[in-house]
């Protein structure tokens, strides 16, 4: 059902944890639907993501996408991190089963929410950054319609 990459990131998730006094924290999803992702960002003075950590309540794919998303954004500028899409996370994982595309969207949104928090705290503008979405499922449905 899952690719080797997904299994690897589920069995050995990278960057699990919390960051104290994080530059930005984003939590998305809800327990009712069975997945919540929280991403912590440590961003340096040059607006580069020095470190990222995550905590996820959810299925194997949710944990693997959180792990991969943190891997993909560490070392990137906030502007670059913002462009890491759910598709990029999925590709890096070698694909996800169709019912789990939702998880990759959640990861994208969690990063977005953490960046939003960072931008708000520091009163800066990141081009293209949108406020966090409450209902990721709505996004998913839009996505499905696009296909």
């Amino acid at each position: 059902m899952y690719t080797e990459k997904v299994m690897d990131h589920f069995m050995h998730p990278r960057n699990v944890g919390e960051i104290e006094n994080a530059s930005g924290v984003g939590t998305v999803g809800n327990a009712k639907c069975g997945d919540i992702m929280r991403i912590y960002l440590d961003i340096d003075e040059n607006q580069v993501v020095r470190d990222a950590k995550f905590k996820t309540f959810g299925c194997g794919a949710a944990i693997a996408t959180s792990s991969m998303a943190t891997e993909l954004i560490i070392g990137k500028t906030v502007q670059e991190a913002l462009t890491v899409s759910n598709k990029a996370v999925m590709e890096a994982l070698g694909g996800l089963p169709p019912v789990k595309v939702h998880c990759s969207l959640l990861a994208e949104q969690a990063v977005n929410a953490a960046l939003w928090d960072y931008a708000k705290k520091n009163n800066i503008t990141i081009e293209g950054l949108k406020p966090p979405v409450d209902d990721v499922d709505e996004l998913e449905h839009e996505e499905e319609e696009d296909e």
């Binding site: 327990a31 929280r38 905590k55 996820t56």
Partner: peptide, 8 residues
């Protein structure tokens, strides 16, 4: 649980 934001 160590990975769960709900537990945190």
């Amino acid at each position: 649980r160590s990975m769960s934001p709900l537990y945190e």
